[in-house]
């Protein structure tokens, strides 16, 4: 074997090594795990009753005096059936404007909840987003079952689906390599099932 062939083999070897390293670097961040978080089982928290707050709630200024923080901390917001019960309680505390009562719980379960958890959602944590998706999609089912509260559940569903899609869009803009991430792809395809496109 003459020197030029040896040199060619060495150069070829270096090139192959370089290309392989580059490809590995590109896909290095891929997450091939299939451990999608299981949907949380419903565990009932201690009973939350709006009647315990009847002294603090001023029915004339109910939107301002509603105990949003306590509600989000104590109430069983993981279970839409409990939310319906809370809504019924609110209707009995303030029976004059039921749409306003719905709007109060909508605010609590959308903007106030997002504000409360903003630090959790700022970083890319796919498990958190998947759990949020699992929680959100229940509201779609409830909107189909409960025609009386259809709009109420749809508003909460739309808010969080928009939130997830816009979050995915921002994450993708800042880290385009996320399209190789298994859980990111999983979320994107679950969103697409529901006509929610992230870009």
């Amino acid at each position: 074997m003459n020197n030029s062939i040896k040199r060619t083999i060495v150069i070829l070897g270096i090139v192959i090594l370089f290309v392989t390293s580059f490809i590995l670097l590109l896909v290095g961040k891929s997450d091939y795990s299939s451990n999608i978080p299981q949907e949380k089982k419903y565990v009932k928290k201690s009973d939350f009753s709006l009647f315990n707050y009847s002294e603090k709630i001023d029915t004339a200024k109910i939107k301002e005096t509603f105990p949003y923080d306590d509600y989000l901390k104590i109430a069983n917001i993981n279970h839409p059936a409990s939310i319906i019960k809370d809504l019924a309680d609110l209707d009995s505390v303030q029976p004059f404007n039921m749409t306003l009562n719905e709007d109060i719980l909508i605010d609590a379960l959308t903007k106030k909840l997002a504000e409360r958890n903003k630090n959790i959602y700022n970083e890319y944590n796919p498990d958190t987003l998947i759990s949020l998706f699992q929680w959100t999609e229940k509201f779609e089912s409830y909107s189909i079952i409960n025609s009386q509260r259809k709009v109420f559940f749809n508003i909460i569903y739309d808010y969080w689906m928009n939130f997830i899609a816009n979050k995915l869009a921002k994450l993708y803009d800042s880290q385009p390599a996320l399209i190789y991430d298994y859980k990111f792809k999983y979320l994107v395809s679950r969103c697409q099932e529901k006509n929610i496109m992230y870009q």
Partner: peptide, 27 residues
């Protein structure tokens, strides 16, 4: 409007009452 990587329209879109993309881009 624009098309995304999965060949779907970017942003909220409805055609004759049929929702194609329900995402309302927020910014």
């Amino acid at each position: 409007t624009y098309m995304d990587g999965s060949k779907a329209p970017v942003g909220f879109s409805i055609d004759n009452g049929i929702i194609v993309n329900s995402t309302l881009r927020d910014s």
